[in-house]
Amino acid sequence: MSLTRLCRIEDVPKDGMQSFETESGEKVLVLSSGDEYFAYQAICPHQEVELCEGFYDGCVLTCHQHLWQWDVKTGAPMGLAETGLEFYELKIEGDEIFIGSSSALDVASLFEGVSSETRDALSKLARVESYDEGSTIYQVGDAVQDLYVLESGRVEFQLGRDDRVSPAGFILRKGEVFGWAALLSDQPMRIARATCKEASSVLALNGREVLEALSKDPSAGYRVMTSLVHLVTRYLASSGAK
């Protein structure tokens, strides 16, 4: 993992927060909690508000705009928040704070709460795939094999065939999961078309291999299936399918 120097320890108030910009223009929020430091995306995933304008009590971060909240030790959503925060590896050397890059797999709410061993096993299964603007990741009727996690870009979905298609939404947030039929044993064919509206990068995981990895860690398997049910019902309730 390549590390980027972000700031000095003394730049972050004790049990407080401060946002910084990396040389590449990425905004990163660093929070102090007791003796530990954590780094997350500096912009609220809801409506692009600066999180450092929000409230922080040393444990829970609250965006002041619509009160989305996160547990600072894990970045996991609490209360009204619908998604976790993008998390950066953080290292302290001397009195300086460095950050690594974050993986979409760590951000994906589907794998939230999964033990780090199982997450490592899943990381090993993940293949990075890049798609050009306009290319299709899968078509209606394609055999279902992989589950996808968005790294960057924008993917749109359509239901139906030929000229009778209807839009079924889009995803653009790092860590969003699609193609989850790969985790269901009785869903052999794609029911939507996934097209990249921008050059996009995704992590592809073979559904069968993911299930195998989870079967070795039943509590992780339980968490993933619970998250999957949440994900699926959210789309069913709104009659879209991904």
């Binding site: 209807s166 939404g169 889009f170 995803i171 709104s238 009659s239």
Partner: peptide, 8 residues
């Protein structure tokens, strides 16, 4: 309207 989850 194209929303994140569906169209209207």
């Amino acid at each position: 309207v194209k929303a994140r989850n569906r169209a209207f």
